[in-house]
Design a protein around this nucleic acid. Sequence first.
DNA 1: CTAAATTTGTGCTTTAAAACATTGTTGTCA
DNA 2: TGACAACAATGTTTTAAAGCACAAATTTAG
Lengths: 233, 233
Amino acid sequence: MAKKVTTELKPIEDVLTVWDVLTPDERQFVKNNFTIHHFKKNEIIHCEGEVPTHMMVLAAGKVKVYKEGVGSRTQIIRMLKPGENFGYRAIIASQTYNTNVAAFEASTVYMLKADIFLSILRNNNAFCYRFLEEIAADLGASDARTVNLTQKHIRGRLAEALLLLSKNYGLEEDGATINIYLSREDLANLSNMTTSNAIRTLSNFVNEHIIAMDGRKLKIIDEDRLIKISKMG
Amino acid sequence: MAKKVTTELKPIEDVLTVWDVLTPDERQFVKNNFTIHHFKKNEIIHCEGEVPTHMMVLAAGKVKVYKEGVGSRTQIIRMLKPGENFGYRAIIASQTYNTNVAAFEASTVYMLKADIFLSILRNNNAFCYRFLEEIAADLGASDARTVNLTQKHIRGRLAEALLLLSKNYGLEEDGATINIYLSREDLANLSNMTTSNAIRTLSNFVNEHIIAMDGRKLKIIDEDRLIKISKMG
DNA sequence: CTAAATTTGTGCTTTAAAACATTGTTGTCA
DNA sequence: TGACAACAATGTTTTAAAGCACAAATTTAG
């Protein structure tokens, strides 16, 4: 991998997508109260069952939201990129976390205490509505995902995962390599299959010239084909 | 089935759970503008892909929210009882419907035009927050369901569906019979399995004295066992 | 830099669930 | 009331995917 350049961290007003609807007072309030946390690769940010204490925003890095299911099988629910919010659903629903979140790579998270977050939600209608919009989109995606994961066959699920990754994290300069460094196991956990099958199916895709592999770097060669496979099931 | 008594319909202030946070003006506004719609058994209320026009509340009856997946296989996402809201997620997310909704039995729906719903959402913060809470709970349930449907085995999924039905629609006077009249196919679509397997697994449960069947009426005999099966996967 | 540990890649076996086929049952309505 | 359609039940076959075992490659750590 290329040597990582130490990019200075974006300030909260650039990371928090709902910044624009905050009042000057609220902006100051947030600025005075948010905290910055760094997580190493594979470090866990929060666990299922814990009481939520903060609304969080990913400032830098990549994290996975996942659930441990039957027999400690893991299902990745979604993957976040900088600027995305997390950890707030449980606060709003007055529940404990129902997912785990862990860093894929070294990540920085801005955290705002739950009570502060709630007080803004309850006082600023535009702020509240933004989160409503966000969570409404998430719910649609979650329901769609349920059907995709339950009904599609292995090839369809893997194709879907690859497309999702390229859409979410984008491509490198070559315009083909997916901009994320994932283990086969994570890819399997994302696609609801065993690691063996993820590896096997990736190999098949390579043989069929749909993708190319260089270790963990995956290059999409024939996106149309991938879309077709994903749609067929 | 017992002859249905023609119960007069509950008024909107009793059906709409968010009524309490409306201002007097908003209450009048809603009263003047909502419409009442009756749907026959199996009638479709809205379809995937359509532009959402109304926020809806189930006033009476039972409806299913479902998605048509690969090869027109159906997955029931959730089932609603009177007092539950639906059809509003797509409005908020500015999307078309991503689910179908159909009546299980003769049902009555109160509808409020999308623009009216949105205007209240944008003016009444408590109203907005209530929907945020509701959708936050739904998202948690959806993610949990994804894992249950993908990771549990047939017996676990069916056990889970039976428990969910009894929790959602309650039991009849005998304290055991689940208060809903479902075809085997619907039960299969709820549990992500084929109709044959739903029938087979139900039979097994009967043989193991976990449930009893009388046609479509299902009676839970050994709930602890059912819970155990559901948890084991 | 080497040794250990983890990850990746493949072949083979087993198994859960789908698909299919057939028969029995119930229910509806002409 | 009888005939047809829809639904339910059950046995058999097929298949997709999991499980397992092991070798090779890569990463990590001492």
